[in-house]
Design a binder for these strands. Structure first.
Length: 311
DNA sequence: AAATGGGGCAACCGCATTTTA
DNA sequence: TTAAAATGCGGTTGCCCCATT
């Protein structure tokens, strides 16, 4: 009964990936698309488990990934989404094309957390640190009465200086509620310390706290999280999990064929990487160059490509 | 110049859920 | 239907780089 083991775990390699391994994995995915990860290591000639291959691809090798620091807009999105979803990094990442859950998680832990603390905001509750004790005391004393969480959200948004990169309302679309999943998320939020998600209203509030001057910031309903609509030229979003388009469609939107940069990793190995804003065309161009043609092996660029399951 | 400590990030670990034989 | 493997996800670790002493 059951299924065959995905791989023989004995003798599998761990640790950082080498350029050679990257090449093999890229070649395989380009040739075959993403099918079953358990078969990938064997078929690609890698001494890795399928899980490791999947992680390497989704977190680092995927051509639609943006590289580099999150933009201010993306950072605000992360904070807003975190306030609503908690540590559901994959959910948050799904609203930020080209970003991975791992990347967002790392960025949160290394940058945003500190930033919020510096601003006097608790990164877990998204409340001003100075009022948490009071709020918690009130909650205890009043028998879990609702607290003024809308104000806290205002404080958060205002302190992130949202006006410096305003969200263009004309280019945003509403994210459809994710049915039961979102409901479940809301139900679980309290256990994740993100209980500020439930009581947003559209009131514009001005609050002074610890010297922070709060500007008028519209609030967002939990079911009205907004994201910037991607344009065809930023085809990366078409790789999202909800997309059924294949890679040929993405290629139609590709602009200039620049270079696919080799990036030095921590082990001083040269690995594949994409600079921010590079797209898959860069990858193809790089591979097609004479100097790198050996990397392509049997990769063909015809319609037999099977990327229908690509993310 | 060497030692040290912290920051940042890629990758691993372990658990929960889903899939499949 | 059931059990085992695959997959997805969040937490954690380990290593490299760099600034400071």
């Amino acid at each position: 009964m059951g299924r065959q083991p995905c791989c023989d775990k004995v003798g599998l390699k761990k640790g950082p990936w080498t350029a050679e391994e990257d090449k093999k994995l890229i070649n395989f995915i380009l040739n075959n698309g993403q099918c079953c990860w358990r078969a990938v290591p064997k078929l690609a000639g890698l001494l890795r488990c399928g899980k490791s291959c999947r992680l390497r691809w989704t977190n680092y090798l995927r051509p639609d990934l943006k590289r580099g620091l999150l933009s201010e807009y993306e950072e605000k999105m992360v904070i807003d989404l975190h306030a609503q979803l908690g540590n559901r990094w994959s959910k948050i990442a799904s609203h930020l094309p080209g970003r991975t859950d791992n990347e967002i998680k790392n960025h949160w832990n290394t940058h945003i957390k500190k930033k919020l603390k510096k601003m006097g905001i608790d990164p877990i509750t998204h409340k001003p640190l100075s009022t948490i004790t009071i709020d918690q005391t009130n909650t205890l004393e009043q028998g879990n009465q609702p607290i003024e969480e809308d104000k806290n959200q205002d404080i958060l948004l205002a302190q992130m200086d949202i006006e410096s990169s305003p969200i263009d309302q004309s280019t945003i679309t509403e994210i459809k509620s994710e049915d039961d999943d979102n409901n479940n998320n809301n139900n679980n939020n309290n256990t994740m310390g993100t209980n500020c998600a439930n009581n947003f209203d559209s009131t514009i509030v001005e609050v002074n706290n610890n010297g922070f001057c709060i500007d008028e910031v519209p609030l967002i309903e939990p079911h009205e999280i907004l994201v910037q609509e991607s344009t065809p030229s930023t085809s990366s979003s078409s790789f999202s999990s909800s997309s059924s388009s294949n890679i040929l469609e993405d290629l139609k939107f590709l602009s200039s064929f620049d270079e696919w940069p080799l990036m030095e990793n921590n082990n001083n190995n040269m690995g594949f990487g994409w600079e921010i804003n590079n797209d898959f065309s860069s990858t193809l161009d790089f591979l097609l160059e004479d100097d790198h043609s050996d990397m392509m092996n049997n990769v063909t660029f015809d319609e037999s490509w099977k990327f229908e399951q690509l993310l």
